[in-house]
Amino acid sequence: MARARGAIVPLAMLVFLVAFPTLVGFAGGGVTLAARILVLGLFGLGVDLLFGFTGLLSFGQAAFYGTGGFVAGYLLIHHIVPSTILALAIGMLVAAVAGLVVGSLALRQVGVYFAMLTLAFSQLFYFLDNSPLRELTGGENGLPGVPRAEVFGIHFSSLQETYAFIAIVYFIGFVVMRRIVASPFGHVLRAILDNPIRAAAAGHDVYRYKLVAFTIAAAYAGLAGGLLGLFQGYLPPDMFTIDQSGQIIVMEVIGGPGTLVGPLIGATVWIYLSQVLQNIGAIGSLWKLVLGLVFVLLITGFRRGIAGGVSTFLQQWQRREPAPVPSE
């Protein structure tokens, strides 16, 4: 019974992923948009583990997104690695190692210091990409010519097929992350989020748990970066920017921290605001202002984002209990 119930969410996710391009199509978008949202959703799974489950607010996740993307892209463009999967895996691994190094330094501090340090370290990556490494990364021009995915002789050559490939990877990433947060390891992370002092006093090595969470988040970011190259065929240098790091945080908070699907929802809102509002002449250029206002409103009043709000509503609707007073 428990096993059957445990399969409901992954099944629902599978159905959703199949239907998603069509849903996006109804709303006037294309399969490219759907793929872009999934890539950000995968990126966001790591951010959610970090912020939503462990309470670590990193403003430097773009560093790992870019690292994973450029490593995988470079290997594929220059045919150094023949297999898409292997290139993605190497990109992911390099991003994870980068995460381990940055994390081991930034996690010596907490709270605002941690956020400031992650931001500063990601700038280091940005400038490395832009100047000393530009022979490899294309500097301000980025890396064009990333080939489409090919796995066991199957070519994912059209946009639809590429979407399918990305959806499969997202699905695996989602199921794995569900498993991680439900594990004893994941329980300790949640304890650290809730009360790090007590978690340490209980005998947990808080620093190491945080470091592993940070590394896993970097790996997810790196994998997502690799996928971006696959469907765009091009890796832009702005993958490394502060704006990119901020963007994924905004998506996480708008969607709902600690829900796993939050970043996916946040990415959908973000991409839609930018694409749909942009086509409405007079206010088109104001889409990001609207987004900023929504973001500030959400943090101020609805700390749990869209997904969190919906799940609270559903729980209360089921129990028919009066709404609890927010603890803030």
Binding site: S183, H187, D205
Partner: peptide, 18 residues
Amino acid sequence: IPALAATRGPFKLDAFGA
């Protein structure tokens, strides 16, 4: 949480455990 610390030690990477 403390029971897990008592049975698992200060750190264990059982991210796929139940």
